[in-house]
Simulated scan of single mutants.
Amino acid sequence: MSDWLLVIISGLLMVLVLFVCTKLLGKKQISQLSFFEYVTGITIGSIGAEVITGLDGQFLQGV
Rank of each mutant, 00 (worst) to 15 (best):
M1P: 06
S2L: 10
S2Y: 02
D3V: 10
D3L: 10
W4M: 14
L5Y: 13
L6H: 11
V7F: 10
V7I: 15
V7W: 12
I8Y: 13
I8P: 00
I9S: 07
S10G: 03
S10I: 11
G11H: 06
L12Y: 12
L13W: 14
L13R: 11
L13H: 00
M14H: 03
M14I: 05
V15K: 14
L16G: 13
V17Q: 06
V17M: 08
L18G: 01
F19A: 14
F19C: 09
V20M: 07
V20I: 15
C21K: 14
C21S: 08
T22K: 15
K23D: 07
K23E: 06
K23V: 15
L24A: 08
L24I: 15
L25W: 15
L25C: 12
G26M: 03
K27R: 15
Q29M: 13
I30R: 11
S31R: 14
S31L: 12
Q32F: 04
L33C: 08
L33R: 14
S34H: 06
F35C: 02
F35I: 15
F36D: 05
E37L: 00
Y38L: 12
V39D: 00
V39N: 01
T40K: 15
T40D: 02
T40H: 05
T40A: 09
I42V: 14
I42S: 00
T43A: 10
I44T: 06
I44F: 06
I44D: 02
I44C: 02
G45Y: 04
S46E: 03
S46V: 12
I47Y: 00
E50R: 12
V51E: 07
V51L: 02
I52K: 03
I52H: 00
I52E: 04
T53W: 11
T53A: 05
T53H: 10
G54C: 07
G54N: 13
L55Y: 03
L55Q: 14
L55P: 01
D56E: 09
D56I: 00
Q58N: 14
Q58C: 04
Q58Y: 11
F59L: 03
F59E: 04
L60D: 09
L60N: 04
L60C: 03
Q61S: 11
Q61C: 01
Q61M: 06
Q61D: 05
V63A: 10
